[in-house]
Each structure stands twice: as structure tokens, then as C-alpha cells.
Write a protein that binds this DNA or RNA. Structure first.
Length: 788
DNA sequence: TGGCGAAAGCTTTTT
DNA sequence: GCTTTCGCCA
């Protein structure tokens, strides 16, 4: 875990360890081992630069060399460089490498960090301009949803039909586009039962009262401030003479605006990215940002890094073959000086279990050093899947054969229930007025203070115009709460007061944290818990306490933890890595397995249904990212049968397999087996495979694609109107027969394909076949009468 | 108030 | 198929 410190960001340059002159005299060994393109990107210091860095072309190296160069030539002082990344990991890596190149630790580079951490730093200085105090708290997704749930309920909206989760997604989407409630376009007004913008506005109000922001606000508020206060913007523009942005293809509109505003001063902005690796469109990233760079910054220099240092020619050729099917690329041609090496291997299996079994054996074989390779450590082998549920098959298999593995990117440490609970206690100790924290733990462990008690507290608080803890005091004073609950509530309030006093008195925060967890009965709660995960949770709590050591006090810990706490345990034992393709971006492994290349799974049906061609192209980029992670050996596989949500389905090999260039692929599947396809006779399923290859030029000719287009044709779905007061007789199963057209609130229109007991099997036009209870659907012609 | 059974959901994920 | 969420009942 790293820290970022806000202290020295605005200090005079005098405090900066390296003076301009001292650095100007320094030799520049970091330039010597750059290739010509990298060197060009590093030395083009003035004006806008777009560094198009293909996979494995030494992007981070060039980026850090550029920073070192800026410092060494005296062009900029450390605190005049804004260097932004998306993840803390990337920021840490950059800091480390700049430090190594300078031969000393990087100090005084306050503007190197993630978009979010830099915005926090800025926002704390200007909080009052958006109605906040500088000690605002940062809510995570969980807090956000609980807050929204309250608002949805208060607005008398059926939370069943309009879940808070959906609203959270919507608001997030709007914030990613830098839309304040007032700026949400009219076209979106119908969102969330026509009340989306209204609730968005209320939510922002609530946040202000709570002196809190969510992640999206960090960017949004800064953009708002910059737009409304040119003087402040100008100050930053003057300060930040050089701007560097990593993974530019992943920026959303808000981040883009923020950068553009800041860059307007000196126009020294260098964006690094790869349009072919844009895989975060679904969370608001705009590939358009990178495609448009030259228009946004006229006179921009575009440097292409195309020499790949990672993969063998066969692997690169396979990746290039796949990505070539995408339209609207900026275009790069990766090349390498490496030896030819192995072809990409392609293998089909009967089902997912067999696939896992085969990969397990293959990994062990490689580890032993057969297969014509030197032994490959497990650390050097990875399995990259499209969706996390695919991991299970591998975990099961590896547990049986005792093959050590690690899952990258599982649930994060700070998202775990026990960690969040403990943090809520700490938050209360630091500021008892934190209502969200109060609500979270007032009845954890169980104190007999359930919904009803909380409601009375809220009522009392609202009556007194106070926060919940004072509301609780009020309630106790009035005797508005029963005997047993009263005693418990009194004890809870007293506890919070005591801990708060200890915080103010400057008590040792580590001991205090332990005391809090003891006195509140929280530790005890898990000690008494008999479920198998309880010991692990206690373990996590211990780890949390340990993490406190790196901070001076609870407050400092809490301020940073929302943004930077990650879950990197340094393992000593050799292990295979299992992760999603998304999590694999930026990583590399000598040996990579890419299982589950089946239409519908990869490319994901949902991606194609929801965003059509755009979605398909993003999936293809994901395939490209996957293949390019491999250094020496890349194995793609698919299964003929797979259990999807408990149901067996026969699968078609991914259309991306058709796009792999034949000359660079070795087909391991015996001909005629499981549609090993690809030149081999593909009988068991899809005898059409061969014809398909004949028309391969048209990559959108596969069954899935056709399916998608059919779906698009039947897209319009009537928005059912609210009819909560209407009495509608519930449909009995007997009211339906096979072949009937029906409507379901969530899944839209469909056709009944089977009736089983009181359940209907409905083939929905868009959502596939579902089994559901009859009363959840109505005949299609009565779609607007759906009763809930 | 909290426990239990039924019902519905289920890509990707950082901060 | 497995997990989470909700509503009802004791």
C-alpha cells in the first residue's frame, strides 16, 4: 500500500530536492537505451504529443524517461509536472521507475498519481466552491447505493422495479460525461421512471449535507470549478507546465475535459495510449478521445511505438490478424526482432471441465520442462478468462490436483463486509456526525436496534435538525425508546463519544482502533460466529489494524483508504495466475492460456446485444489484449458444451477464431473432433463451419452476429406505465398456452416455449430462455398492464 | 426483530 | 447451479 501526501503540492520550489542547475549537468543514460521512436517521444517536450504505444512496445519506459528528461534538462521542476494514471498500481510503478532513473527517491512530485487522487488533492483546496468542507469524505459504491435507496424509497418509487443499483449506474454514467443535474440532456429525462434527474439532484443535495462525494464527483466537481472560476484554472495552468497521461484511450468525458482545461495553458500535453487496447467503453471510456487527439490539439505530434519487445512473431501476427477486423483504428504495425518461436495453439474440448483438465496438465508439463521448453515457473503462466465465473472450473480442477494458483482481482480488501464495518466505527470515532457510518453499525453487532429503532432515531434527528447521533441523544432524553433498546443505544452513543474524545486527545490510533473493535463487541461478534468464513474475517481485521501503522492517525488513514487501499499480498510460493482479460491489461506472461473462446461467451452475447458493432469491436480488442499478453506460448481453447447458469448448452467456437491467420496457428484438435474446425472437418456441431470460412471476408456473417441483427430488428419495447393502484388479476398458468406472446417487465417480449408445473419457459426476444412464474408475465397485448 | 424459505439474478471494474 | 435479496411469519 502506498500513500500520497497532499502536503507539499503547493509549496515553493525551494523545498524541492533537486535544483534545476544540478540536474542540467547530469548525464543522460536513460536516453541511451531507447529506440528511435521512443527517443523521439521522449525528446519532443514542447507542444502536444500523442504517443501511440502498441502492446509491449516499452510505453512505461518511454513515459518515465520523458519525466526524467523533463527534470534532467531543467525544463520542469518536480512539482510542475502533472502525470496521471488510472490505477494506483500504475502510479506506484511510475514513481518507482522515475526514482530509479534519477538515482534517488522521487520527492516533491505531488502531481503524480491517479485521476482521482489528484482531484482529491485539488478539491480539498477548493471544496467550499461546491458547497463542501475540505474534510469531505469519499463514499464508495456501497455507501452510494444505500443512500440512493433511501432517496428512492422517500420518492415513493417502487424499489423493486426501479432498483437503487440502476439509479447508481445511471448517475455514474452521467457523471462520467461531466453532466451535472442541470446539464443532463432532455433526451435522458425519461430515465428511471422519468425521475432520474430529479433523484440525481436530490442525491447531490444529500451528499452536500453529508459533506461527502462519490468517485464521479471528484472529477465532476473539479471540472465545474475550473469552468466557473477561470482564475483558479489559470493558477493550475501556470503551475502544471507539463502534462503526461497514461492509458489515454481509457479516459471518459469528464477526465478528458479536466485534462483539456488544464492543458490549455502551456499546451505541453503528452498522451500515451493504444486505441486497440480500449476495453473500458462500458464504464464510460471514450475511444473517441484518442481518435480525436490531433483535432483537439492542432499541431500535435504523433509518435508510434511499434517495435514489440514482448512477444514472438507468431503471437504478434495472430493478434494483428484479429484486430485487423476492426474499423476506425489509428493503425499500427507491430514488429519484433525476436525469434519465430511457437505458433499460437488452438484446441477444442468436449466441455469446460475437460478444458480445465487439459490446461492443468499442460501447465504441469510446462513446469516440468517438457514440450520442448525449459521448465516454466508457475509464476510465468497465466489463464485469462472473459468473465470471472469461468474461473471456477479452473479453481475446482486445480484444487483437486493440488496445483497452486492465485486469483487476481477478486473482491478487494476494503470492500469486504468486516473491513467496511470496522471502518464505519473508525469514521464515527473521527466524526460522530457521519450518518452513513452510524446507520451502518448502530445495529452491528445486533443490539436490538432494528429498522424501527433507526426510524425513530431518524425522525428525532430530523425534528431537531441534527445528525443521527444527536438525534439518538434526543430520543433517549425524551424517553422515546423502550427499555432494552434504550440501554443499548445509550451504550452505543457513549462508546462513540468516548472514542471520539480519545481521538481528539491524540490517543495512539492503533490501540484506539483495537479498543473500538473490542468495546463495540465487533470482534466478539465474529468470534462467536460459527460460519466457516469467520476466522478469515478476524484475520482481515488484524490486517486492517496492521495497515494503520503506516498512517499517523485514524483521520489520515480514512482519508486515503477509499482511494488507495488495495489487496496486494506478496506471495512467495510459485503459483499460476487466473484473472479476467480486463485485469490482465498491462501485464505479461511467458505462457498464456485463453480458454472459453466460444460465441456468446467471448465475444460476450450481452456486449453484442447491448452495444452492437461497437460492443463486438470492444470484445475483439479484448481478444487482442489477451493474445498480446503472451511472450512465448499462447494457447486458445474452446469447448463444445458448457454449462451456462446451470443449463448445458452446446457452443460454437468464437468468431474470433476464424479471424486468426492460419499460417500462425497450430491446430491441436484432432480433425473431426468437436468442431476443432478451422480447416478440419467440423461435424459434431455446425457443419456449416467450412462454408463459413469461405465467406470469412465478411466476419459479421456468423450465427451470433445474425442473431444479433434479428434481435435489433425487434428492438422497440413499450415502456409500461405505472399502474400501482390498478387492480389486475394475476395470471394463472392456465391462462397461457405454448406459443403465446407475453411481456415481462424486465425481459421484454417473448414467446412461451414450454409449461412446467406453475412455471413457464419463455424464450425472450432479447434475454434468452427463462423459466418463470406465470404471474410475472402478461399477454403481450396487455403489456401496459403489468401489475407491479 | 430476525430467521427462514422462495424467487430472481448472473460480463467486464477502478477509483 | 450458486448466491443474493425480499417478504412473511414466529
Amino acid at each position: 500500500m502506498s500513500t500520497f501526501d497532499e502536503s507539499d503540492a503547493f509549496e515553493a520550489a525551494a523545498s524541492v530536492p533537486l535544483s534545476r542547475r544540478a540536474m542540467a549537468a547530469r548525464p543522460a543514460p536513460y536516453l541511451d537505451d531507447l529506440n528511435p521512436a521512443q527517443r523521439q517521444a521522449v525528446e519532443a517536450l514542447d507542444g502536444p504529443v500523442l504517443m501511440l504505444a502498441g502492446a509491449g512496445t516499452g510505453k512505461t519506459k518511454a513515459l518515465t524517461a520523458r519525466i526524467v528528461h523533463l527534470l534532467a534538462t531543467g525544463r520542469a521542476r518536480p512539482n510542475e509536472i502533472l502525470a496521471v494514471t488510472f490505477t494506483n498500481k500504475a502510479a506506484r510503478e511510475m514513481k518507482l521507475r522515475v526514482g530509479r532513473n534519477l538515482g534517488e527517491a522521487v520527492e516533491g512530485m505531488p502531481w503524480m498519481g491517479t485521476f482521482h487522487s489528484i482531484c482529491v488533492k485539488m478539491l480539498r483546496r477548493h471544496a467550499e466552491l461546491v458547497g463542501l468542507k475540505s474534510n469531505f469524505t469519499i463514499l464508495d459504491t456501497d455507501d452510494q447505493i444505500r443512500l440512493l435507496k433511501q432517496l428512492v424509497l422517500a420518492a415513493n418509487i417502487d424499489e423493486k422495479r426501479w432498483p437503487a443499483r440502476m439509479l447508481a449506474g445511471l448517475i455514474d454514467h452521467w457523471k462520467n460525461r461531466a453532466w451535472t443535474p442541470a446539464k443532463v440532456p432532455a433526451a435522458e429525462a425519461s430515465a428511471f421512471n422519468n425521475r432520474g434527474t430529479e433523484l440525481y439532484e436530490q442525491y447531490q443535495e444529500r451528499l452536500k449535507t453529508l459533506n461527502a462525494v462519490d468517485f464521479g464527483d471528484l472529477l465532476l466537481h473539479m471540472v465545474t470549478i475550473f469552468q466557473a472560476h477561470p482564475d483558479i484554472l489559470e493558477q493550475y495552468q501556470r503551475w502544471l507546465r507539463y502534462i503526461l497521461v497514461d492509458e489515454y484511450q481509457d479516459t471518459n468525458v469528464a477526465q478528458y475535459l479536466w485534462l483539456r482545461l488544464l492543458a490549455q495553458g502551456h499546451r505541453n500535453i503528452c498522451c500515451v495510449g493504444d486505441d486497440d487496447q480500449s476495453i473500458y467503453g462500458w464504464r464510460g471510456a471514450e475511444v473517441g478521445n484518442i481518435l480525436r487527439f490531433e483535432k483537439d490539439f492542432p499541431g500535435a505530434r504523433v509518435v508510434r511505438l511499434e517495435q514489440n519487445y514482448r512477444s514472438t512473431p507468431h503471437i504478434l501476427a495472430a493478434a494483428s490478424g484479429v484486430i485487423a477486423a476492426n474499423a476506425g483504428r489509428l493503425g499500427k504495425t507491430l514488429w519484433t526482432e525476436r525469434e519465430t518461436g511457437e505458433k499460437v495453439r488452438l484446441i477444442g474440448h468436449w466441455d469446460g471441465e475437460e478444458e480445465a483438465r487439459w490446461i492443468g496438465e499442460e501447465i504441469e508439463a510446462l513446469q516440468r520442462g517438457t514440450r520442448g521448453f525449459d521448465p516454466v515457473s508457475l509464476d510465468d503462466q497465466a489463464i485469462l478468462v472473459r468473465a470471472s465465473h469461468q474461473m471456477r472450473a479452473f479453481e475446482d480442477r486445480f484444487l483437486t490436483i493440488g496445483l497452486p494458483y492465485r486469483v487476481i482481482g477478486g473482491p478487494r480488501f476494503y470492500e469486504r463486509q468486516e473491513i467496511r464495518d470496522a471502518m464505519a466505527y473508525f469514521r464515527l470515532a473521527v466524526s460522530p456526525a457521519d450518518d452513513l457510518a452510524f446507520e451502518r453499525v448502530v445495529n452491528t453487532p445486533k443490539r436490538g436496534l432494528g429498522d424501527k429503532a433507526v426510524q425513530s432515531i431518524q425522525l428525532a434527528a430530523r425534528g431537531a435538525g441534527a445528525n443521527l447521533i444527536d438525534g439518538a441523544r434526543e430520543l433517549l432524553a425524551q424517553g422515546g425508546i423502550g427499555g432494552k433498546g434504550a440501554g443499548q443505544l445509550r451504550a452505543f452513543v457513549d462508546g462513540v463519544d468516548r472514542w471520539h474524545a480519545a481521538t481528539l486527545a491524540g490517543a495512539n490510533h492503533i490501540e484506539l482502533a483495537e479498543t473500538i473493535l473490542e468495546e463495540s463487541g465487533y470482534t466478539e461478534m465474529w468470534q462467536n460466529d460459527k460460519t466457516p468464513e469467520a476466522p478469515g474475517r478476524l484475520e482481515n481485521l488484524k490486517e486492517l489494524i496492521k495497515a494503520l501503522e503506516q498512517f499517523e492517525n485514524l483521520q489520515g488513514f480514512l482519508e486515503h483508504v477509499a482511494l488507495i487501499m488495495d489487496n496486494e499480498s506478496e506471495d512467495v510460493a510459485e503459483k499460476v495466475s487466473i484473472m479476467t482479460l480486463h485485469a490482465a491489461k498491462g501485464l505479461e506472461f511467458p505462457v498464456v492460456f485463453l480458454p472459453g473462446w466460444e460465441d456468446g461467451l467471448f465475444p460476450s452475447q450481452r456486449a453484442m446485444d447491448e452495444t452492437g458493432l461497437k460492443g463486438l469491436e470492444e470484445e475483439r480488442r479484448l481478444a487482442y489484449v489477451g493474445i498480446t499478453r503472451a511472450e512465448r506460448l499462447c494457447t486458445i481453447s474452446f469447448a463444445a458444451n458448457r454449462r451456462v447458469y446451470g443449463q448445458w448448452q452446446s457452443q460454437l467456437p468464437s468468431r474470433f477464431i476464424d479471424e486468426l491467420p492460419e499460417d500462425h496457428v497450430e491446430v491441436l484438435t484432432p480433425p473431426g473432433l468437436y468442431g476443432g474446425g478451422y480447416g478440419a472437418a467440423a461435424q459434431p456441431f455446425g457443419g456449416s463451419r467450412i462454408e463459413e470460412r469461405a465467406t470469412r471476408a465478411d466476419v459479421y456473417n456468423s450465427p451470433g452476429w445474425k442473431r444479433m441483427q434479428d434481435n435489433a430488428a425487434t428492438r422497440p419495447v413499450a415502456q409500461p406505465r405505472e399502474s400501482r393502484n390498478q387492480v389486475i388479476d394475476l395470471q394463472a398458468v392456465s391462462a397461457f398456452t405454448e406459443g403465446d406472446r407475453v411481456f415481462h417487465q424486465k425481459f421484454g417480449y417473448g414467446t412461451i416455449v414450454g409449461i412446467e408445473g406453475d412455471k413457464l419457459d419463455v424464450a425472450f426476444d432479447k434475454a434468452g430462455v427463462k423459466k418463470l412464474v406465470a404471474r410475472f408475465v402478461v399477454p403481450a397485448d396487455r403489456a401496459d398492464e403489468i401489475p407491479f
